[in-house]
Amino acid sequence: MTLTEFREEVRKLKESNKYPELKSYLLPALWMAEKNFPAITHDVMRVVSEELSVPLVEVEEVARFYAMFHTEKKGKFVIRVCTNLSCMLRGGEEVLSELCRLLNVKPGETTPDGLFTVEEYECMGLCDGAPAVTVNEDRYTNVRLEELPEILRKYGWKG
């Protein structure tokens, strides 16, 4: 998406009349940025700031506050591995280390080909299927170490 297209989308969002004041569109606008850009950069934030009449610094503080927004470049697929208590008790940490080993990255890093970002993540509400992993919007539960390569290949992993 280009910045001009993004600006158009933010304008459309405003026309939805979902909220009675402009600033409330900030999270929806940042979500749109998160889904359409590799990172919510200052250029992206500036568009949001101008369209919603919110100071740039306030856009940035919101973009940095929420864990699901990426202000640094992320991979095409964000893999979130839950290691909170229920997943930890059922092997979430082992899943995380195995994924990192397969992709040769540390938690928080992106593979050099820009395909995957691996994140150690807090509870995603999938505890009845612990350990749980999500890849973008897809979810995987009761994950076993041996099925990780198969999951990764679905998203274009060549390993």
Binding site: S24, L26, L27, L52, F65
Partner: peptide, 25 residues
């Protein structure tokens, strides 16, 4: 529907409202 973006604190009702208003939770 208003989507949060990954912040436990927004389950606290006043933080939730701040977040709905487009602020840090």
């Amino acid at each position: 529907v208003h989507s949060g973006a990954g912040a436990y604190i927004c389950g606290e009702e006043t933080a939730l409202i701040e977040s709905l208003e487009g602020k840090r939770g």
